[in-house]
Design a protein around this nucleic acid. Structure first.
Lengths: 234, 234
DNA sequence: AACAGAAGAGAGCAGTGCTCTTGCTTTCGT
DNA sequence: ACGAAAGCAAGAGCACTGCTCTCTTCTGTT
């Protein structure tokens, strides 16, 4: 059993980090699809084949970047969430939404890597799912908090009985019990947020929205309202 | 001036179509990023350089495919919309939403091409915007119809005065006057729909939603409700 | 029938991911 | 302490990509 970290071990993790960092920089500059393993190797100062000692394939490198990005985003959301009184769910949602957009706008290529079209041959391995769950987990935690606080949502369509089964996957991941109706509304919030960001970052709002920041805040306000997080309802 | 269509002209459009059709087939099979001009040429039965007589670059070919896809989707939505009584905006929205999802699920790669991360070096020229507008136009038409019908939306946050300017782009594209609040809600519907589809098609709902179809219908119902398209409000 | 222009073929350039072989160095077990 | 074993870097090479350039062939028009 040699748990001792040899010099080679240290060099390995260091070089691995160097590669991943340069990859990350390249990602931020040229985007996921244009990521070139050879270009990265060139900049790190080694020949392309040497990189394969550290990442068995370009996809593995992508996976590392994906996980890292998910974690970074998740952490940003958690920090934003924690910076606000825990019992003020409306404020927490606002903070999380703004943090989400701030990170996405600051890292559009990373956003595209996470939530854009999947890279062609690439199929995300299960390694990334926990990191990905960290992001959605923040929203789901808020959903639970809202349920616990007993917030009254805007007029909501009663969930079809079969909807309960349709939501089975999520429910298994949630510690707390949340009503179908509330779950649906929070899933809609989830889709709305990422839809908004995708449309904005991928250029589909270019001709329509003149002030992204302003409009986003309006949307978040409406979201807070629909979820019933403001004291006054209807 | 020879406006007469010579045999060569006819051959040209025919071959152009053949290339585009093969490209379209490949697109449906391997996705946008993996589209290979050489592979297409190979299948059409000519050498790669010959294709450049018809499409000056791979990007031009992509542009053609994008425009085509937008048009196809737009047409599908228009057909679905027209198949329902014009004065029943709720029914029209339901039909459009279901048609949107049906097309997207049937053509995931085309969806990714249109609404996923933009292709690396590629910047969509203005040629595609009218076709793209056709899709969003369907939704905006419904928004106008709803305004005209005087539907009362679910409790809505009053729009900040500055929001009016933020929405300037859209408003310039809309023939009818629609209130800021209603516009915001319909833009949210737009973002929600494409967010939902992106999350679904790009695999982010994989662990959470067991019955996509069922869940989507529930979401659409809630959407109809929030937009105030059902007779009974709150 | 002659000619100009369009179309196709092929070679070639620079780039990609990835594999395999060849040396070299560090580590580990005896 | 030394030899074996494992790890690492480099280079050549394969199959592929988009794209350009040249050369030839073919074809529609006058």
């Amino acid at each position: 059993m040699s748990a001792a970290t040899t010099a080679r071990d240290r060099a390995r993790v260091e070089i691995t980090r160097t590669i991943q960092d340069t990859a990350r920089r390249h990602l931020g500059e040229v985007g996921p699809a244009a990521l070139s393993l050879r270009a990265i190797a060139r900049e790190v100062g080694m020949v392309s084949s040497a990189v394969y000692r550290y990442f068995p394939s370009r996809d593995e490198l992508l996976t590392a970047l994906i996980t890292e990005a998910y974690d970074e985003l998740g952490a940003a959301l958690e920090v934003a969430d924690a910076a606000v009184p825990a019992d003020d769910v409306a404020a927490r949602l606002r903070a999380v939404c703004l943090a989400l957009r701030a990170w996405s706008v600051a890292h559009p290529h990373e956003y595209a890597l996470l939530y854009g079209s999947p890279v062609p041959g690439y199929a995300a391995p299960d390694t990334t799912t926990p990191a990905a769950g960290r992001v959605t987990g923040v929203l789901m935690t808020l959903a639970e908090a809202s349920e616990r606080a007993g917030h009254v949502m805007a007029p909501t369509v009663p969930a079809d009985p079969s909807e309960r089964d349709a939501l089975g996957g999520i429910r298994a991941l949630l510690p707390l019990e949340v009503s179908d109706e509330r779950l649906v509304r929070w899933l809609m919030a989830w889709a709305l947020l990422f839809g908004h960001l995708s449309l904005e970052l991928f250029g589909h709002m270019h001709r329509g929205i003149l002030d992204y920041d302003r409009h986003f805040r309006q949307v978040v306000e409406q979201l807070v309202r629909d979820l019933g997080l403001t004291g006054d309802d209807a």
